[in-house]
Design a protein around this nucleic acid. Structure first.
Length: 193
DNA sequence: AGTGAGATGGCCT
DNA sequence: GGCCATCTCACTA
């Protein structure tokens, strides 16, 4: 179990997104620590990406944490009722991020089907683990943070990684078709299309 | 299985 | 005032 160092997140966002598949997300938002395998992510490429909140350098109260250095969390609320968890990538003032769309709870619950329903989508994931606005801008390379990511040795080969267009970004013109959604092939916890 | 609408409220123009 | 990086339920067939 090795916590990912901050410079893990400084690389280009697409590479970081793929590298996060199979890593372990540790969540301690309630006093109990939970662990979950990351199985689905999306890359958001900053100022040149029409689907990204920081497209054309937009800097608003909501997106402030995206301008922090890589490895910070970016949690925002959407549709008035859901939160989405991202990890900021690249260095300071390069506002790019990876959205964590789905995880697989560890250890795998005996009631497999039940755990499957609870984390297979960005909104459900945050609801289940009580991730909210308080967990924005956390340094995710620190073990003391409520959210951090580790490498527990789980291996993912390139051939297991599927690339598809991102979900829910139809407003973004041709960028809606960019294959920046990545997930583990045949994984039961990936969100539905 | 596929489509459509409602919930619900902060954020941005 | 309108728009969402969502989810769920109702409806059609």
């Amino acid at each position: 179990m090795k916590i990912l160092p901050q410079d893990f997140y400084f690389e280009d966002t697409t590479s970081v997104a793929k590298a996060l598949l199979g890593k372990s997300l540790h969540i301690n938002t309630t006093g109990t620590e939970y662990k979950a395998r990351i199985v689905e992510v999306e890359a958001y490429l900053g100022i040149t990406d029409p689907a990204c909140h920081t497209f054309e350098g937009r800097r608003t109260p909501r997106t402030t944490s995206m301008y922090l250095s890589g490895g910070h969390s970016y949690v925002y609320q959407i549709y008035g009722m859901y939160f989405c968890l991202n990890v900021v990538t690249r260095t300071e003032n390069h506002p790019e991020a990876v959205l964590i769309r789905a995880v697989e709870p560890l250890p795998l619950a005996a009631k497999f089907e039940k755990s499957q329903l609870v984390s297979n989508g960005p909104g459900k994931l945050c609801r289940h683990y009580a991730i909210n606005k308080e967990h924005n801008a956390l340094p995710m390379w620190h073990k003391k943070s409520a959210l951090y990511i580790s490498d527990d040795g789980f291996k993912v080969s390139k051939s297991q990684i599927v690339s598809r267009p991102r979900i829910g970004v139809d407003y973004a013109g041709e960028a809606a078709a960019w294959p920046l959604r990545f997930y583990l092939a045949d994984d039961k916890f990936v969100s539905k299309k």
